Amino acid sequence: MVAITTFLSLLAAASTAAAQSQNATLRYMPFGDSITEIICWRSKLWNKLQTTEWSSVDFVGSGKTENNCRDTKYDRDNEGHSGFLAINIANQKQLVGWLQRNPADVITMHLGTNDIVQQNKNVNDIIAAFTTLVQQMRDHNPRMKIVVAQIIPLGLGNFNTKVQQLNAAIPTWAAQQNKTESPIWVVDQYTGFSGSGDNRDGVHPNDAGDTKMMNKWYPAIIKAFEAAKADKTAEL
């Protein structure tokens, strides 16, 4: 009888742990500038996730504005900030406060456009800001799963040469910053994206551009979710 009782207790504990693992909500922060804030790839991503095991993932962030996506259902929370520079966000430690208010397990980052367009910042300075931002993410959560974009092209001005220079620097930088417990995935949002045809105003994606961005993000985000879920399961 004692053996049966012990077995049943162990079985109940295992069932409880499995249920907790299934119910542990992952928190995902879309982070960046206006190409994260005033677009619709987030809506498309949320809807695609609804048909998967990741339908309960909680999008987090201080931004909650609907951006004419004609979608009343999606989780609008994000940390996209129109006009913001990566260098300023890093130096002013703005991400530190955003993560304190909205903790995250997974984060995507599409930044650098405004650094180039507004102030023609040096690529090395932008990359240094990325390093600072990654450290701030890990100070908040040592096991943060990070997805970084090689940013989309522009359809105005002569900025794409520097965009390409930044994008070329990102993979080597990411490999240097990568950690087993806090991996970085690089997503090429530049290749196959037309700065004129896939942007509605030369900067921000139109519907076709939003779809392309979502499809590029998706595989890496799923890998990040899987890694974050494994962490939560291991904690039980």
Rank of each mutant, 00 (worst) to 15 (best):
120 N>Q: 15
101 R>P: 06
80 G>P: 06
130 F>H: 07
107 I>E: 13
135 Q>A: 15
134 V>G: 08
109 M>T: 08
135 Q>K: 14
89 I>Q: 14
85 L>S: 10
140 H>W: 15
148 V>A: 00
108 T>H: 00
144 M>Y: 07
97 G>C: 02
118 Q>E: 13
119 Q>R: 08
177 Q>H: 00
120 N>K: 10
77 D>Q: 14
174 A>W: 00
161 T>P: 00
135 Q>T: 13
101 R>D: 15
144 M>H: 13
135 Q>P: 04
172 T>D: 07
165 Q>P: 02
127 I>H: 05
140 H>A: 10
113 T>I: 10
172 T>F: 00
126 I>W: 08
150 Q>D: 09
68 N>D: 12
169 A>C: 01
173 W>P: 01
163 V>F: 04
162 K>N: 12
146 I>Y: 04
100 Q>K: 15
147 V>D: 04
146 I>F: 01
66 E>G: 09
118 Q>Y: 01
136 Q>D: 09
153 P>R: 01
106 V>W: 03
163 V>M: 00
71 D>E: 11
90 A>R: 01
104 A>W: 06
161 T>W: 02
167 N>K: 06
70 R>V: 04
88 N>H: 11
72 T>E: 06
92 Q>P: 04
97 G>T: 13
136 Q>N: 05
95 L>Y: 05
85 L>E: 14
165 Q>F: 03
107 I>Y: 07
64 K>M: 11
69 C>S: 10
114 N>C: 08
137 M>D: 05
130 F>P: 06
177 Q>C: 02
94 Q>H: 13
74 Y>L: 05
90 A>Y: 07
161 T>Q: 06
116 I>H: 06
159 F>S: 07
106 V>D: 03
110 H>R: 11
117 V>E: 15
93 K>W: 04
103 P>K: 03
130 F>M: 15
120 N>Y: 08
142 P>S: 02
122 N>V: 07
123 V>P: 12
162 K>Y: 05
94 Q>N: 14
99 L>F: 15
64 K>A: 15
132 T>F: 06
167 N>T: 10
94 Q>I: 14
162 K>I: 06
111 L>A: 11
137 M>W: 13
132 T>I: 14
101 R>H: 08
129 A>F: 04
107 I>T: 14
137 M>G: 09
125 D>F: 02
149 A>T: 13
169 A>H: 04
77 D>Y: 08
129 A>N: 01
104 A>C: 10
89 I>C: 08
117 V>C: 05
140 H>F: 08
129 A>D: 11
83 G>K: 10
90 A>T: 00
162 K>Q: 15
103 P>S: 03
127 I>R: 02
91 N>H: 11
132 T>N: 03
